[in-house]
Design a protein around this nucleic acid. Sequence first.
DNA 1: AGGACATTTGGAAGCGCTTCCAACTGAAAG
DNA 2: CTTTCAGTTGGAAGCGCTTCCAAATGTCCT
Lengths: 317, 317
Amino acid sequence: MSRTAASRVINNAPHVSRAKRDAVHKAIRELGYTPSRTARALATQRTGVVAFALSGDDPALFADPFFAQVIVGISAALEETELHLLLCLAASDRGQGRFKNLLRTRGVDGLMVMALRGDDPLDRIVAESGLPAVYGGRPLHGEPSWYVDSDNRGGARIATEHLIGTGHTRIAAITGLPDTEVGQSRQRGFAEAMALAGLRPYAVETGDFTEASGAAAMTALLAARPDLDAVFAANDNMAAGALRVLRDRGRRVPQDVAVIGFDDLAIASHTQPRLTTVHQPVQALGREMARMLIALLGDEKPSPLILPTRLVVRDST
Amino acid sequence: MSRTAASRVINNAPHVSRAKRDAVHKAIRELGYTPSRTARALATQRTGVVAFALSGDDPALFADPFFAQVIVGISAALEETELHLLLCLAASDRGQGRFKNLLRTRGVDGLMVMALRGDDPLDRIVAESGLPAVYGGRPLHGEPSWYVDSDNRGGARIATEHLIGTGHTRIAAITGLPDTEVGQSRQRGFAEAMALAGLRPYAVETGDFTEASGAAAMTALLAARPDLDAVFAANDNMAAGALRVLRDRGRRVPQDVAVIGFDDLAIASHTQPRLTTVHQPVQALGREMARMLIALLGDEKPSPLILPTRLVVRDST
DNA sequence: AGGACATTTGGAAGCGCTTCCAACTGAAAG
DNA sequence: CTTTCAGTTGGAAGCGCTTCCAAATGTCCT
């Protein structure tokens, strides 16, 4: 009985007689044989591992429940395969170095990348590695060959149209980070909807997608335009911050001011009043990223994907 | 110039002259040489990867922001090393199979495990693998050699004492899953504090750490003991559910009923009123788990660790 | 200058798997 | 009873690194 036969049986490759196959199985059982993933990886030039990398300057960015949902989606898809998931939080320089090294040394077969800022270094690292990579959301500059994104622009439009449709005219916006594709798309969707309705943005403040920035922006908005009657926030966190400020200032939501968010994360149903928002299929985003990568590894050439968003009306509008 | 020399230089091992060292570096640069992580792993019998595994029957359990925080802590600690993090969401049978296989084939050097239910299969899988493992929180049966846990019992006591100290006597509890160590410890801490004060639990309902279960429990509590004046919830999610029910029923918090939670996750400061709770250092929990594992891999024998909890008074008490 | 010792060097043997290829088997065909 | 061919079988050569060990070189002292 040869190594060859054993190998064939384990990978259930052809050219093994029934008898031999059984014999090998028996031997494996008796010897308590355990294959080595590493040795196999060396021989096949495949690690069986893919990475999910996240950049952004804040190392705790990952604490945003958004990413946890993405991971759940990714895991669900990977579970259909033999691939395992490596998590790279590459915020710091050191983290980026480690990540770069991981790719250089071919520690993974492919990658999924998210949260790229305007001129994200991750972008270069990924490109230089030459590894199959799918993006979650698009980077700001240059469209990658493979990505999965939500229809941010469309979502922002329906959100704004909802505000307009419910009779609001003095509509302000709290936009997200301007050096991200998400930030820009949502801002653009808002602007388009307003223009289409013949309205002009009543006021615009920029946030960074955090609740605190939403609160700060709301404060500024209120100072500049005390009589605004609706606010479009580019994500739920910022909407929650805005809601808090409005409550503190005694403005009733939605009677005095309507507020709409974006994402539909858990926080949206925990605010008081519950937040009307645009639902983005976060788990599906992760799932589709993983599927796309799997396809890529299987030498298929999938197409980029844009996931639909939809309005979820609750109590803040 | 030999492979040997190259290897020595790369791992900056001793027994290499300065001249040779430089020569190798030059060659590496000129040839654009890239070492292979897999080959090195095969030779050294070390993968340079550790896993974080999570069980529990719900595949989306990971979506709980709690774990995201743990991961952030783990990543921070791993960043000090050359270790990478593999994420195993082993909820389903298939997931567990994959995990088991990962360990059998020595795909990782060590592991961190969390969220073990009463008779969690992961427990066995981990034990049988013989790999260095540190637990986050203790499993229900049998104390592992290495774990990091929060002082759940102590935390529940200070929470309850806070309720008692602020003049409440008809104190009910919403406990967590009884087949988890956390669930039991917090329940025990509550019971102890009550006993110490000469009080008896006014009513007790069991939840499963989700917000919905907290709401259901609160409803039951209200039905059984309409005149209760305080509620200890075994975590923030359930406290949030309780808060919602109380608000719907027109009970004022904290005037009519005081509510206290446990964990101090983001949700605690988003509830209305903001939730008084017991802070548990979640990120530190992850960090210490990772550090402990690193020590283990370095052939040290660290001691189990119990992290302190502390009261955070907000507006619900 | 010669010997004792420390340091540097590279050949070669693994690490545990896959896979090419040549050799072999047995059954169907001539 | 050969010939042919499809299907099996295992020897041997990698995959790309580390590390043991023996040989070579260098250093210092008398």
